[in-house]
Amino acid sequence: MKESMSNDVLVKAEAFAIATQMYVRLRRVSSRVIDVMYLVSNKEYAQHIVDIALATKDSELERYVARLSPLIDLYPEPKAAVIAAQKGRLENEQVDASDVYSNEVTAEEIYEAQVSHHYIGALR
């Protein structure tokens, strides 16, 4: 676990260093500004920026892409994919009706919300 976290930190640190260099070069070459932090955390965005950098046909950007591409493959799986997998698993499970929280508000809950939490009532 510790080694995995250490590896993730190293990958993100190296990707950040390369992405900041790409930011400067892309701005000079094509007047394009990228989001470095998003590039480091999102695999799809990183691949999109790699495609943009290669389209400029700049030799320096091609070197940065060559350094960044292996790191992109090491990025963790996107959270949306993880959530979708969990959602699919949960949809297959049966949900007991007694486990579902009732959305109905009781009179007691309304009273508790109104009494002591009002600004003027709190000052008295």
Results as ranks from 00 to 15, higher is better:
E91W: 01
K87R: 15
V115M: 15
A97D: 12
Q86T: 06
E91G: 02
R89F: 14
L90N: 08
A80C: 02
A81Y: 09
N103K: 04
E112M: 12
H118M: 07
A113R: 14
Q94G: 06
K79C: 06
E112F: 15
N103F: 01
H117M: 06
E104A: 10
A113H: 09
D96Q: 11
V82M: 08
T106H: 02
A97C: 04
D96G: 09
A97M: 09
D96C: 09
I110M: 09
H118I: 02
H117L: 13
I120Q: 07
N92V: 04
Y111A: 13
A113T: 02
E109Q: 15
E109C: 04
A84W: 01
Q114E: 15
A113S: 09
A80E: 14
Q94F: 07
E93L: 15
E104W: 01
Q86I: 11
E109S: 13
R89G: 03
H118V: 03
T106M: 05
A81I: 05
L90Q: 08
V82R: 13
Q86M: 12
H118E: 06
Q94K: 13
I120G: 04
A97Y: 06
N103A: 06
K79P: 00
V95C: 08
Y119F: 12
A85T: 04
S102R: 04
I83L: 15
S102Y: 00
A84L: 10
D96I: 07
E112L: 15
E104H: 03
N103G: 05
Q86N: 13
L90G: 00
H117G: 08
A97T: 02
V95G: 03
E108M: 10
A80M: 09
A85N: 06
A107P: 01
S98V: 13
G88P: 00
V82W: 07
A81C: 02
N103Y: 01
